[in-house]
Design a protein around this nucleic acid. Structure first.
Length: 437
RNA sequence: CGGGGCGUAGCACAGCCUGGUAGUGCGCUCGCUUUGGGAGCGAGAGGUCGCAAGUUCGAAUCUUGCCGCCCCGACCA
């Protein structure tokens, strides 16, 4: 992509409404634009990152055997009356009336909708286990949206729903998602910690939330220091026994958010207990028959008798992760994208566009990267050098290649790693080798 | 939802107290000079001063009401 043809409205100064790093940087980098409180338009650069995260989440869900579908954003109130949540959910639910006077709502989550799909189509235990998910926009009318996309009212979420014949099988589904989440966060370049969690309005008896550490996190977390040295599970299929062993390993260390942490009961030695702040980026629940009982989601078991299925739900905040990753990975100059989610892998800077030698060298370099399928943003504008450097650091692409008249005289380009700040002078061929090789 | 703050050019702000030609910096356009870490000079474009009512000869400025946004708290993926 040539910057001259791209739409990336960056800001040199900090917008005053943005208080925390990710919000400030997303606005400055031209990733999002606020539409109203807690509701954002995703501009091309932000949209690219959002889609990258979404795709990684999707791939890991698919690998874990979940099947993607897509449920609507607007749901009928009657479904929610069946589960009694229409009255319980409170003002966070955005309620709408259609032209016929029917009560509708903008879905804050989809347990009722998925249970309806399940009950009208699945009748036999032979069709289980089943795990269905979608990646869809949700709306929760938060009293106080804040922190940009991290606590928006409208947000993109992956939510999966598992259906099993009994608790034992449901537990396997739960464990499978637990492990899939560990793999997902690792691919996103994040160190995530599973915490035993409160089940809240979704209900249920088993629940973990996944948090990433960042100073601006909204809740305080307490954990045993060794949990950070656990190895991410291999990216392969695991048997139910292997899954259980992995979950046991990850939950054997103490880890709790402030509302679940009781200092007197915590047995971790003082020197081993770390207190930091965390951002919740995922939450999984086993809630058994809560919805299948109320909504009549049953299948015939092996003995021919109907059984209400045992369910779980599994959420990942996709749009929140965009902000979360920035919180966990930035410096005073801007964002530092982990390579897997970076909008482009390489930023190519033409230091003197209009100069024949520079233009020719850049065009050639750009062409070769594109031919090799490497995503590159080529700053071919006539802006001054300082501005180009600052902008490239701001948007945080993992690698920067700078081509200017001075280097060209001695046949080198500057090759910079955004994360470490390390620079080296290389021949164009050597730089290409590093990026393509 | 309790408490606080702010709405003036795309962005950040001054002007308001004490009513009288709507300003500054950045950004944008054009020209010239520049060109290796957010340049200089010159010339421009860009505003229903959040909205409405009121007071007044006259309102960005005073009064009232409304709307929007931000921060702290409680709440929450």
């Amino acid at each position: 992509m040539r910057l001259s043809r791209f739409f990336m409205p960056t800001l040199k100064e900090d917008p005053k409404e943005a208080q925390i790093a990710s919000h400030r940087l997303m606005l400055r980098a031209g990733m999002v634009q606020q539409s109203s409180a807690g509701i954002y338009s995703w501009l091309p650069l932000g949209h690219m990152v959002l889609k990258k995260i979404e795709n990684i989440v999707r791939e890991e869900q698919n690998k874990a055997g979940a099947l993607e579908l897509l449920m609507p954003t607007i749901q009928p109130a009657d479904l929610w009356r069946e589960s009694d949540r229409y009255d319980d959910y409170g003002k966070e639910m955005l309620r709408i009336e259609d032209r016929h006077g029917r009560d509708m709502l903008y879905g804050p989550t989809n347990e009722e909708q998925i249970t309806d799909i399940f009950r009208s189509n699945v009748k036999s235990y032979k069709d289980l286990p089943l795990n269905l998910y979608h990646i869809q926009w949700k709306f929760r009318d938060e009293v106080r949206p804040r922190f940009g996309v991290m606590r928006g009212r409208e947000f993109l979420m992956k939510d999966a729903y598992s259906f099993d014949l009994d608790y034992e099988n449901s537990k396997i589904a739960y464990n499978r998602m637990f492990v899939a989440y560990l793999k997902t966060y690792a691919r996103l370049g994040l160190q995530a910690i599973p915490l035993r969690a409160d089940t809240g309005p979704i209900g249920g008896d088993l629940s973990h939330e996944f948090i990433i550490l960042a100073d601006t996190g909204e809740s305080e977390v307490f954990y045993h220091k060794d949990i950070l040295s656990l190895e991410t599970p291999e990216d392969k299929d695991q048997s139910p026994e292997e899954l259980q062993a992995l979950v046991d390993e990850w939950t054997s260390y103490y880890a709790a958010a402030d509302e679940m942490h009781v200092a007197e009961k915590c047995t971790v030695a003082e020197g081993d207990l770390i207190t930091r702040r965390g951002i919740e980026v995922g939450h999984i629940f086993h809630f058994g028959q809560k919805y299948s009982d109320k909504m009549g989601a049953s299948v015939a078991g092996p003995d021919g008798k109907d059984v209400n299925v045992s369910m779980g739900s599994y959420g990942i905040g996709v749009s929140r992760l965009v902000g979360g990753i920035i919180e966990a990975s930035h410096d005073e100059n801007g964002i530092i994208w982990p390579e897997e989610v970076a909008p482009f892998k390489v930023g190519l800077i033409n230091l003197k566009s209009g100069d024949d030698a520079c233009d020719a060298a850049c065009d050639e370099f750009y062409g070769k990267l594109q031919a090799a399928g490497v995503e590159v943003l080529y700053d071919d504008t006539s802006e001054r050098a300082g501005g180009k450097f600052a902008k490239m650091d701001l948007i945080g692409l993992p690698w920067q290649v700078t081509i200017g008249p001075r280097g060209l005289k001695s046949g080198v380009v500057e090759f910079k790693n955004r994360a470490s700040g390390e620079k080296e002078e290389l021949s164009p061929e050597a730089a290409l080798e590093k990026l393509i090789g």
